[in-house]
């Protein structure tokens, strides 16, 4: 448990699961949840590097805090967009939002 690689792999698994969710889910809120997972995977990496490699332990924590802030902003904006889209399409299925079809 005290090895960097373990944390990195855990982070990678979280990130990839999140990615998978983003790619697969049709529910926009589900995609948002998956994005949160990806962000957490990245956070875990930051904290792991901070713990095992970094010269200054405060910096990694600060970066993680910032990521959390960004995540909060992203969630707020994302949810509001989803609500707007729902009003517009009466659905939160991304596959219905295909105005870009070629």
């Amino acid at each position: 448990m005290n090895s960097l690689t373990v944390y990195l792999v855990v982070g990678a698994v979280l990130f990839s699961l999140g990615l998978f969710g983003v790619l697969m889910r049709r529910n926009l809120i589900g995609m948002l949840i998956s994005i949160e997972l990806m962000l957490n995977g990245a956070n875990l990496n930051f904290m792991a590097f901070n713990r095992f490699l970094a010269p200054e332990p405060a910096v990694g924590q600060i970066v993680t805090l910032f990521v959390m802030g960004i995540a909060a902003a992203e969630a707020a904006i994302g949810l509001s967009i989803i609500l707007a889209l729902f009003r517009y399409l009466h659905s939160i299925n991304v596959e219905r939002a295909r105005r870009l079809e070629g």
Binding site: L23, V94, R98, L100, E101, G102
Partner: peptide
Amino acid sequence: SFLQSGMLQYNL
């Protein structure tokens, strides 16, 4: 053109 299905997720 089937690649441009307008589906975000395929692009992703």
